[in-house]
Design a protein around this nucleic acid. Structure first.
Length: 594
RNA sequence: GGGGCGGUAGCUCAAUUGGUUAGAGUACUGGCUUGUCACGCCAGUGGUUGCGGGUUCGAUUCCCGUCCGCCUCGCCA
């Protein structure tokens, strides 16, 4: 076999005159007849033009050259020379070419169903790309993203190793625990009727590694959650997971801020500056979401007291509800930019958040117009102008419902409006730490408290007293790192006291006995000397999405799954032999007749 | 589990109100072509219209069911 001496994509004018061997895939071929054949040969570094002068090479080389087809794998020996024809300014190798003297066809390729051409990729159905992922991944763009991902994990390993973190692996076959996402589950052959669960995260293992005295832990790990995917979510995803002992919230925030700053410096050569901090409460009040996109305004205001004075049935009904509120967004210039079609469309759409609608009003030179204008004629209208700082030409959108629904609605409307009005600036990196999350959320339907983060999150140091007396007000030592409105990392200081852990379990409805059954190993470990500790985990896929500038998580995963959890390339999931099931003490349940 | 969009040649798409032999570009095959580079020119091959039913003289088109893909609500401690 001809042994490669150079990557195609790295050939440069300085190699002129050298005899080289290049190897790769036939990107395109241009047969010019009996005299010349051109071939753009591709490897991971890029393209180089190979030229066959058919009058100057042996007959078998002529035959092979003229038979070249797309995606054939070949090796070519030849001399690098300045191009005889025009240079191609679109190629890094465009001023030179390899004049072939020998060719070895390493593997003919069947006619490719898709081509790794960048200008084709956007048009090809993603389904087809996933089915032939090995071809799709040959595209320069995909190669570039996978390299980027590799640089990110390399940087993470270097940064955290430099800061004393040890890379330690944790098991994949663990046990199912209550709370959290649906588990993927694996039947046990040796314990009939018993099941492993695949980890949703290494959470408890990394805490136990702290108890075991490793002080600082890092793992780039796979997490598995059997929930429906989204554009930015897969059932199987990766985390940069870490944990530190003898630390408080600020220590973790500092460590991670340093990591992100270093990463952005490494990838973009950019200084991201100090990362601002915002409380959960402030985020919800101003942006209607726990991960605000602070790249644009359109902030939310509470206008419940103004609404109280309006003779508008929808507002009155909302305020009569428990925790009823009226929220508003001032849209500067909205009288012009918001069309009836837009606001009507949004009004329909907000029903998906259980909101009744999206009242709107515009302030023009003639006064209040459209929508709920007639309810604003009196001093309520003046109060609204005051409250929102309205100017002529503005519009106002309202959401009236319970706090949860109105806030969510305004938050979603704000984001959609930002996008559709083109208010979200490109090329900005707005990082934000969100802290002081509530410990618990109340599940009204089942009348119980649920951990907002996870039940191993510690209350903030000053909050232990109100843990039982006012769980809804109790604030946790959790923290999320938000970038341009997306959560890229989340973590907390953990509970290290077995007594506190027991109290939290009790609060979320786990009796001492149940807690012992489900989390006995954790409680025992905590009782055997647990240092104060805390940590965080990055969503690696999402981080790479930001760095790569894509909205599609499948773009940053080499072998992703579809929205129904299938791998179209290997055709998983699939059936197994009955014998396999027998060994596992598992039987298929036939569909019940309808 | 719910809502929306889509599925026609290998790929990307078209096909009028239900009506002739389902077309185009590209790819592919053959021929021509000595400086191309998304090479060009000529000719040709290529179809279970996702699948299964139904209505009809006739279905890519209408109806029912179903599968698959994408977006989304729920869900994602």
């Amino acid at each position: 076999m001809l042994k490669r001496t150079h990557y195609c994509g790295l050939l440069r004018p300085q190699h002129e005159g050298e005899e080289v061997v290049v190897a790769g895939w036939v990107n395109t071929y241009r047969d010019q007849g009996r005299g010349l054949v051109f071939c753009d040969l591709r490897d991971r570094e890029g393209l180089a033009q190979v030229v066959f002068d058919l009058e100057d090479v042996p007959g078998d080389v002529v035959t092979a050259a003229r038979a070249l087809r797309r995606e054939d794998v070949i090796a070519v020996r030849g001399k690098v020379r300045k191009r005889a024809g025009d240079a191609n300014p679109r190629l890094a190798t465009g001023s030179i070419e390899v004049l072939a003297s020998a060719i070895e066809v390493l593997n003919k390729a069947e006619v490719p169903p898709i081509l790794p051409d960048e200008h084709e990729a956007d048009r090809i159905a993603e389904e087809t790309r996933l089915r032939y992922r090995y071809i799709d991944l040959r595209r320069p763009r995909m190669q570039q993203i996978m390299r980027l991902r590799s640089r990110v994990t390399k940087f993470a390993r270097d940064y955290f190793a430099h800061n004393g973190f040890l890379e330690i692996e944790t098991p994949l076959l663990i046990k199912s625990t209550p709370e959290g996402a649906r588990d993927f589950v694996v039947p046990s052959r040796l314990y009939p009727g018993s099941w492993y669960a695949l980890p949703q995260s290494p959470q408890l293992f990394k805490q136990i590694l702290m108890i075991a005295g490793f002080d600082r832990y890092l793992q780039i790990c796979r997490c598995l959650r059997d929930e429906d995917p989204r554009a930015d979510r897969q059932a199987e995803f990766s985390q940069i997971d870490l944990e530190m002992s003898f630390v408080e919230r600020q220590d973790v925030i500092d460590m991670i801020s340093g990591f992100v700053a270093g990463l952005w410096k490494e990838i973009f050569g950019l200084e991201i500056g100090a990362i601002p901090v915002m409380t959960y409460h402030e985020a919800m009040e101003r942006f209607g979401i726990d991960r605000p996109d602070t790249r644009f305004g359109l902030e939310i205001a509470d206008v419940s007291d103004v609404a109280q004075r309006m003779d508008f049935r929808v507002f009155q009904d909302a305020l009569a509800k428990p925790k009823g509120v009226v929220k508003a967004i001032r849209v500067p210039g909205g009288a012009e930019t918001l069309t009836r079609k837009m606001t009507d469309g949004w009004g329909e759409w907000v029903r998906t958040f259980k909101a009744g609608g999206l009242p709107v009003v515009k302030l023009t030179a003639k006064g209040w117009e459209t929508g709920i204008a007639k309810f604003l004629s009196g001093d309520a209208g003046e109060a609204l102008k005051q409250r929102l700082g309205l100017e002529v030409g503005d519009a106002v959108l309202f959401a009236a419902d319970t706090y949860a629904i109105a806030t969510k609605t305004m938050g979603e409307v704000r984001l959609r409006m930002g996008r559709e009005l083109g208010l979200v600036p490109e090329g900005q990196w707005k990082f934000l730490w969100v802290i002081d999350f509530p410990m618990f959320e109340h599940d009204d339907e089942r009348n119980r408290w649920v951990a907002l983060h996870h039940p191993f999150t510690s209350p903030n140091p000053d909050q232990f007293d109100i843990l039982e007396s006012d769980p809804g007000a109790c604030v946790s030592a959790g923290y999320d790192l938000v970038l341009n409105g997306s959560e890229i990392a989340g973590g907390s200081i953990r509970i290290h006291s077995p007594a506190v852990q027991q109290r939290v379990f009790n609060l979320i409805g786990l009796s001492d006995a149940e807690a012992e059954v489900k989390f006995g190993f954790l409680l025992r470990a905590l009782r055997h000397g647990a240092p104060p500790h805390g940590g965080i985990a990055f969503g690696l896929d999402r981080l790479v999405m930001h760095l790569a500038g894509t909205e599609n998580i499948r773009d940053v995963i080499a072998f992703p799954k579809t929205q129904s959890g299938a791998d179209l390339m290997i055709e998983a999931p699939g059936p197994v032999d009955l014998e396999q099931l027998d060994e596992l003490h598992v039987r298929n349940v036939e569909e019940a007749p309808a």
